[in-house]
Design a protein around this nucleic acid. Structure first.
Length: 451
RNA sequence: GCGGAAGUAGCUCAGCAGGUAGAGCGUCGGGUUGUGGUCCCGAAUGUCGCGGGUUCGAGCCCCGUCUUUCGCCCCA
């Protein structure tokens, strides 16, 4: 039986044209994160299984992770998310770090999933976290960063929406206002999380089941439905306008509006599971109906670092998956045509030119050009076609005459124009093209495009 | 774990009352000796996912199996 050429289920091969896309996506992530002062970190892909057990989620470990026993009898798990790891790292240097600490990473993660659109078993996820800031300035900064990142890919405000809610507010509403106990709250949170997947009737039926008979008699269901209709903070029951959770949301939304993040909405039904978030949570969703899903999300999780036996550290962060991002960009036709790193393909003319051209090639490379040379001695037609097929932007023709005069013909393979130039000039032209190809939009441009 | 769809040349697919395979694209070569994307000519390539069954005969029908894919469940 022949070996399969397929990659492992749920994982992808990155052929050069695929890797180019990934490099583009990651490159923008790095640029934007670093522009906001975030520093890149990384960690091992394997962690002790206990690290992912902090919430007692044995079921998740058993069914959705790659977990195995190593040769030293230790149970290890391939990381399924970065948050436990980064919390571990922060806790490890809790005392010596300079705060606020701004960290980002683009780890590959593995989850044993059954695949569907936007969900694979191996994926990458940008993680952005800021540590040591109590105020909503932290939320403001990471959401602004996320917004600028999307815009760096050419996204417009209308293509996505930033949904905001607060875990603290949810607790006030469910515990204080609806008088639910902890178990009821958790069930309801899960239910609301799935609300738009259920029929209205099914939702009502399942919501009814959460309440006690007494609560039902007191009209808990109506109250809940009324709550879920809230589209703005002002729609919340009277008295809530003074709650700290609401005030924080209000302040955050005002700050974001001031920063020209115009597509923020309060969404009382936004839940994001119910694990480690402690206050404000947010998601960014695609507005395109055919790709209607959350692209990424995050929030404040002030308690996680403290699990490592040190004082807690205020933390706000988000994660953004590469697959969902790519789906978003493809849906909105925002992925540019990407060319290889090779700046120019050298077409050799005549007998034994390969050796004779070496000095010229070295000169071009020394000046910083990425040069591929055709060593086959094939007829020119074949050489040129090869360059075109590689997607290389320029061809440089070198033969006896060119070596004698020191003037090489530089051809733009996209528009077919060509001109003879000295090497120095060729380098200038090619580098100029390379630099202006992908410039990140400026804030003024972003505003102009979206106002 | 459940359900839908699909597996035929490198790729996209056609094929059909069941008679031992085709197109387009791509690849390679040519249309004479230093120049591509058009055009013309030519060539290579398939155990029709795998195993079994029905039949004189199966890509096509039946059973099983594997793989891919979409959705459900779940989603830190």
């Amino acid at each position: 039986m022949a070996l399969s050429t397929q990659p492992y289920k749920g994982a992808r091969d990155f052929y050069p044209e695929d890797k180019r896309v990934q490099k583009y996506l990651f490159g923008r992530m790095r640029e934007v994160c670093e522009r906001f002062g975030y520093e890149e970190y990384d960690a091992p892909i394997l962690e002790p299984t206990e690290l992912f057990l902090s919430k007692g989620n044995q079921e998740i470990i058993d069914e959705q992770t790659y977990t195995f026993i190593d040769r030293g009898e230790r149970s290890v798990t391939i990381r399924t998310e970065m948050t436990p790891t980064v919390s571990r790292m922060i806790a490890g240097r809790r005392q010596e770090l300079a705060y606020p600490a701004r960290w980002y990473s683009i780890p590959n993660l593995w989850r044993y999933e059954r695949m569907q659109r936007g969900r694979l078993r191996e994926f990458w996820q940008l993680n952005v976290d800021i540590f040591g800031v109590q105020g909503v300035e932290a939320e403001h900064e990471v959401i602004l960063l996320a917004d600028r990142l999307l815009k760096s890919y050419g996204a417009k405000a209308g293509m996505y929406v930033v949904q905001l809610n607060s875990r603290a507010l949810t607790e006030e509403l469910f515990g204080g206002y609806l008088q639910l106990d902890k178990t009821q709250s958790e069930t309801l949170i899960r239910l609301i999380d799935r609300k738009n997947k259920l029929s209205p009737e099914a939702f009502v039926a399942q919501a009814e089941a959460v309440f006690t008979p007494t609560q039902r008699e007191q009209g808990a269901l109506d109250t809940l439905e009324q709550l879920l209709k809230a589209r703005r903070l002002e729609d919340l029951p009277s008295g809530f306008e003074a709650k700290p959770a609401v005030l924080r949301l209000q302040q955050l939304m005002a700050m974001l509006a001031e920063s020209r993040v115009t597509n923020c909405v309060f969404d009382v039904s936004l839940m994001r599971g119910f694990d480690y978030y402690t206050d404000i949570v947010f998601e960014v969703a695609d507005t395109a109906p055919e790709n209607n899903r959350a692209m990424f999300g995050g929030g404040r999780y002030d308690g996680l670092v403290g699990l490592f036996g040190v004082d807690p550290v205020a933390t706000v962060g988000f994660g953004m998956g590469d697959v969902t991002l790519q789906n978003f960009l493809e849906t909105h036709m925002l992925l540019p045509e990407l060319h290889p790193e090779t700046d120019a393909y050298v077409v050799l003319i005549g007998e034994n030119t390969y050796e004779k051209a070496q000095h010229a090639l070295a000169e071009l490379r020394d000046m910083g050009l990425n040069i591929a040379v055709d060593p086959t001695g094939r007829k020119l037609e074949k050489q040129i076609k090869s360059a075109v097929k590689h997607g290389i932007h320029y061809a440089i023709f070198i033969g006896e005459a060119e070596l004698a005069t020191g003037q090489y013909k530089l051809r733009n393979l996209l528009d077919g124009t060509d001109e003879a130039h000295a090497p120095q000039r060729i380098v200038t032209i090619v580098k100029d093209y390379r630099h202006k190809q992908f410039a990140i939009p400026q804030t003024e441009d972003i505003d102009d495009e979206n106002l």
